[in-house]
Structure formats: C-alpha cells, structure tokens
Design a protein around this nucleic acid. Structure first.
Lengths: 214, 214
DNA sequence: CACCATTGACTGATCAATCAGTCTACGCAA
DNA sequence: TTGCGTAGACTGATTGATCAGTCAATGGTG
C-alpha cells in the first residue's frame, strides 16, 4: 500500500504550496489592495515562478476567493478558541473584544485585507455570501451570551439588537483604526468603547474599564 | 466692464462642467469601484468626450480626490442642516441617526463610494487626511450633544467615549448594510440599534424605539 | 521512463496620459 | 450690423505601459 501514501504526501505538498500562495496573496493584498494585487506580485512574494500561481488557482478571482476563505477560517478558529477558553458569558465577551481589537488576527495588515474585500462586496456575490454567513455565525454565538447576561440582569432592549450593535461596533472601530490618526490605532481606547457599550446595558456584569483613562 | 462678466460666466460654466464630471465619477465609482473606474467610463456617463475629463482634472487621481471632497462636502452640509433644525440635543441626535441611516446621502450608491475610498486609505495619505478631518469635525459636534444629555442625566462613562462609539456604530452599520443580506439594508433596524445605544446611556432622554419591532 | 510541479516568454486586452486638431462663443473693429 | 480673430472648451486617435491568462519547454522524483 504505497500508492495511498504517495497520494497523501503529494496532496499534502500541494496543500502546503496552495497555503503559501494564499499567504503571499494576503500579504500583497494588504499592501496593494484587491485590484492592485498582481499575479506576478504573488509569485515574487511566494518566491516562485509566475506560472505556478496560474497552475494552482487558474484565475486571479479564484485565488482571491481562496484567500478570503482562508481569512474567514483563520478568524473563525481564533474566535472559537478564545470564546471556548472561558465559561462566564462576560469573560467570553471580554475575550472577543480582546480578539477583535488588538490581537494578531486583527492587526493593521489583516484589517486592510478585510476592508479591501468589503469594498468589492457590491460587485461580488461570492464575497457577499461569505460575509453574510460569517456574520450570521458570529451573531449566533453572540446572542446567547447577551441573553445569558440578561438572565442575571434583565434589560428592556431586544437581545438581538444588542448583539448586532456590538458586532457593528467592532466593524466601525476597524474602519476607524484605518482612517483615524496618522499613527496606528488606539486599541485600548477601542476596547474601552466596547466595554462602555456592554457596561451601559449590563452595569453589574461589567466593571468600569481598567486599561484606559480619558 | 464686460470682461469681468465674461470671466465670471466662464468660471461658472467651468465649475458646472467640473461638477457634472464629479457626479458622473461618483456614479461610476459606485458601480465599478475606485480602480475599476475608467476615464472613458466617466466621459460616457457625463456624455462628453474622453479628452474633456483629462482637460479638467489632468489625472485620474485628481478626479478621485475632487470626488471625495465633493462627497465629504455634501455629507457635511446635510448633517449641519439636519442638526441645526433642532434645539433639543436628543432631537439633534435623532436627526443625525435619520441622516446616517436611511437618508439620501446614505443610500446604497453613496455608501459604496465611501467604502471604496476606505479601502484605499492605507495607500493614500490624502484620503486619510480627509477622513481624519471629517471624523474630528463630526466628533466635535457630537460630543457637546452627549455632554448636554449627561448634564440632565449624569453618566459614569467618558463623554468622548460615548460619542466615539456612536460614530463607530454608524460606520459599522454602513458596512453591515453592504455585506448583510441579499436584499437591501434594514435601515429601521439600524436606527433602532443606535437608539438602543443612546437609550442604554440615557434612559430618560430616549424613549423606547417606535419604528421597529423584533 | 512517466508523471507532474514548475518556469517564464508570449499574446491580446485594457487603461492613463498625450497631443494635434476642431468647434464655438465672444469681443472688436469697420 | 457684419465679418474677423482669438481663447479655450472639447474631441478622439495614438502611445506606451501593465496585466491576466496561455503554453511549450524544463527538471526532478519515484
């Protein structure tokens, strides 16, 4: 039974190569934007020839879609890991805030890529589907946390509205981190903004911010 | 004194022509994105020859910058008008919510153009300057409103944090309107999200939402 | 030898920018 | 009033550069 081994090893090698090309693509997208990314750029970044990119992804569009899928998966995995590391709903929310605002899946490079895909959303149904699914999955995890807090500390506002607002707040703070000042984003201020949001709805579950002073 | 008349009329005509080219550019950007916009597209949309676009704006980049400036000015004018139409801080805030989420300066077309410029922000210092200034001006108008509410109804959270959060919420809800469902954005839900935000900080000044039910 | 990942020159298409020339409206002089 | 001259708004063919996608040739490995 050597054939299956061979096949498996080859498949793994191809998968690794594809992964390296996707990582190179993401790096280039962060630097030059979606339409600015060139297949030659990706090849140079990955240290391989031009034709190899075509060989593994046929078209630029397919490479972009694969890159978006990788980005989504990386984000989703990080978020599940952080969320599962806690039992308390408030602690889970704090962990999500830390993930979204200051972690290595939400650094300047990654956010530039997210916004690049956002900008193409009106013209690309595939991107729209990805974002829609990701957001639904995100809200499906967020809403129970809000409801759990509301069980201990009743609130008159609809839980789904609170969850949706937090999710929108994350997106808006990402935008702000790009358009804001000349120097990098103020992540501790961004985190404080989110905590203030939750604190306003659930004063007992969220203490005042500790890592930011006006 | 006929020469000054001539000059003035000519200048006005040129200004009108430039304005029509900028409007055509914004329409094309909404449809094809920033790098996807072609000078030939703009000429076709404006119903003039190719060379005229070059004649009035020299380069594509200058046309884009002029379009962004026009967009910013249109938004700023609408926002001042709505804000000045009320005396009560809470009413001013409601007016800003209505402006940002559902008015004709925040329709699908305009938002697509804003996000297109956002996506180029990491590579264009001019865009960054524009956004930074606009945001500062916005916050300078928002913070006093929050402070006025806090005067009647004290809140422990820093006023600037609350204002910044509302601004980020607007941006995030714009993103959501693009990436969200297949059909258009749910603006009444978006407005309810913002009212819930303010309601959480200032329960007495903001009644429960009236135009949205879960 | 057979297979397939890999290479990079080549093709055709697209676009921004240039430029030589046309057209139009106006002022002016007879 | 009529005809002439000019400024500058306006045109679109051309140019040179860039890019995605193709393909025939190469090399390395089992």
């Amino acid at each position: 039974m050597s054939t299956p081994d061979r096949k498996a090893r080859d498949a793994e090698k191809v998968a690794r190569r594809r992964q390296s090309l996707i990582e190179a693509a993401i790096t280039v997208i962060a630097r030059k934007g979606l339409p600015g990314m060139t297949l030659a750029d990706v090849a140079r970044e990955a240290g391989c020839g031009y034709g190899l990119v075509s060989f593994h992804f046929e078209t630029k569009e397919r490479l972009l879609l694969a890159s978006l899928d990788a980005l989504v998966e990386e984000y989703r995995a990080a978020w599940h890991a952080r969320s599962d590391a806690h039992n308390d709903p408030a602690a889970k929310l704090e962990a999500l805030i830390d993930l979204d605002l200051g972690s290595d899946v939400a650094d300047e490079r990654h956010i530039a890529v997210w916004t690049a895909f956002w900008a193409e959303t009106p013209r690309n149904a595939d991107y729209r589907t990805r974002f829609s699914e990701l957001n639904n999955a995100y809200l499906a995890r967020l809403e129970p946390l809000i409801s759990a807090l509301a069980a201990a500390e009743p609130v008159s506002t609809d839980h789904r509205l609170i969850a949706g607002g937090l999710s929108a707040l994350f997106d808006g703070l990402w935008i702000g981190s790009q358009t804001g000042g000349q120097d990098g984003a103020d992540w501790s201020r961004a985190r404080a903004t989110c905590r203030a949001y939750l604190l306003a709805f659930f004063p007992k579950s969220f203490g005042p911010e500790t890592d930011w002073r006006p």
